[in-house]
Design a protein around this nucleic acid. Structure first.
Lengths: 112, 112
DNA sequence: ACGATATGATCTATAAATGGATCATAAATA
DNA sequence: TATTTATGATCCATTTATAGATCATATCGT
C-alpha cells in the first residue's frame, strides 16, 4: 500500500541532481572512461550510470555517490581526507544539538 | 534476474552520504522542524526522512535532495539562483565535450 | 565514407525501496 | 517527576528501481 514516490520535486532538488549528473559525465569524459567502464567499476549496470548522468531522481544516492567517487567528482567540494574530517566534526556538532524537536514552536521557521 | 544492488561502497561515497544526512539533521533541528513535519512537506514518510538523515545509501537521490532543499541545506554550496546558473554553464560545457568516449585509450586514467 | 563501438532507449524478471501502521524508548517541558 | 511527544525500529504490502539483454542510432577513428 505504498504511495507512489514523491510526485513533485522542487526546482532546487531537480537542478542539483542534474548538475551532479553533468559533473559526473564531464569527469568521466575527461578521464576517457566509457559508461560501461564506470558501470563495471561501480558494480552496477550501464543503464544505471546513464540514468545517474541524466540526473534521474529515482536512482539511489549510494549508486550516484559511488559513481561520482569513481570518476573523481568531489562531493561537497571536499577531498577524501577533508570529507572524513568534516564528517568527524559533524558528528560532534550533532551530539550537541537537542535529540528531539518540540513541535510546540508552531511558528514555522522557513525564513531562509 | 537483477543482481543485488552494489554490495560495497567506497569510503568516500559512504561518508558523503552520512555527511549529507548530518547536515540535514542539523538544519532541521536548527529550524525546529520535526521529522514528521519534514516528511509531510516532502510528501514522503517519516521513516524515509529518518533513513536519509542516517546516510542510508539505498534511498533515492530525489528524496534526499528534496529533503535537503526543504530544510535549507545548500547542495554544492550553492544558493538556488547560483545552482541554476551553474547548471546552465554545465550544459554548455557538456555540449563542448566529445559525445562518446573511445575505449581505445586502454591506459586507464585513475590518477586523481 | 566506412567500419567499429559507444550511447540511448526499451522490455522483462527480480530485487529493493517506500508507505503506513505499530511498538518501544528517549527526551523535552510543565 | 510526570506527561507528552519525538524518535528509532520493525513488519508487511505495494510500488519502484535495477540488471541484463537487445535494438537503433550517433559518433568516433581510420
Amino acid at each position: 500500500m505504498a504511495k507512489p514516490v514523491i510526485r513533485s520535486y522542487s526546482r532546487y532538488a531537480r537542478e542539483a541532481a542534474e548538475l551532479l549528473g553533468h559533473m559526473i559525465r564531464t569527469a568521466r569524459t575527461e578521464r576517457a572512461l566509457t559508461v560501461a567502464d564506470v558501470a563495471e567499476r561501480a558494480g552496477t549496470s550501464r543503464g544505471l550510470v546513464h540514468r545517474i548522468e541524466k540526473g534521474d531522481m529515482g536512482c539511489s544516492i549510494g549508486a550516484a555517490f559511488e559513481v561520482a567517487a569513481i570518476v573523481g567528482v568531489r562531493l561537497f567540494e571536499a577531498e577524501p581526507a577533508t570529507l572524513t574530517r568534516h564528517l568527524a566534526m559533524s558528528r560532534d556538532t550533532l551530539s550537541l544539538l537537542p535529540k528531539a524537536v518540540r513541535a510546540g514552536t508552531k511558528a514555522v521557521k522557513d525564513d531562509f
